[in-house]
Computed example of a mutant assay.
Amino acid sequence: MKITKIFTFDSSHMLDGHDGKCQNLHGHTYSLEITVSDGLIEAGAKAGMVMDFADLKTIVKQTVIEPFDHAFIYHGGNARESQIAALLEGWQMKTLRLNRRTTAENLSVEIFGRLKSAGLPVCSVKLWETPTSCAEYEGN
């Protein structure tokens, strides 16, 4: 059995060295679909549920939304992106360092890993960067 909950957050990023507009610092209102898969709870107040949507919301908010929302997300292995992050941090602005390039594909993998590490039985993460473009990661 699977359930899905949708979230949104706003972040900025850039893809240094990209051969298109995304090389520039820009932002997105991301839409995030989290799907979890597990057996149904058999007894108690949550019987018949994979998990309570409220519990799912709490975990996703703490693990993903709070660190990502309104942050400059950057690839810590990229010198230019790291310089921009240092400047922003000097102004007490929110940044989030990742160990990978901040493509929608890589962000979906990052988010999946964070949720798995938090103990969530996540089976897929779909991250919409625009209303018509998304990346989906289904863990193995």
Rank of each mutant, 00 (worst) to 15 (best):
T4I: 05
L32V: 01
H13S: 03
T4K: 13
M1I: 09
P131E: 00
I111G: 04
K2H: 15
H18T: 01
K46D: 15
C22Q: 08
F72W: 05
S108P: 12
N99L: 12
A47G: 11
V64W: 09
M51A: 06
N140Y: 14
G27L: 08
T102A: 13
T95F: 05
I41D: 01
S117K: 10
E136S: 14
I84E: 10
L56W: 15
D10T: 05
H28F: 10
C22N: 10
G44K: 12
S12I: 05
A86I: 04
K61N: 15
K46Q: 15
H13W: 05
E89V: 10
T95H: 03
N140C: 07
S133W: 01
E129S: 09
R114N: 06
D16Y: 11
W128N: 02
F7M: 07
L15W: 10
S11G: 06
C134R: 07
K5Y: 04
G119R: 02
L40D: 05
M49N: 03
H13Y: 04
T35M: 06
A118L: 10
M49W: 04
L120Y: 01
T4N: 06
L56M: 11
I59H: 07
A85D: 01
I73Q: 02
A43F: 11
L120D: 01
G76M: 06
D69E: 02
T132V: 12
H28Q: 01
S82A: 15
A71Y: 00
E129H: 05
A43R: 14
K57G: 07
T132N: 13
F9D: 00
S133L: 03
N140L: 13
S12V: 05
S124C: 13
F9N: 00
E81H: 00
G44S: 04
Q83R: 14
E110S: 14
W128V: 09
T29A: 07
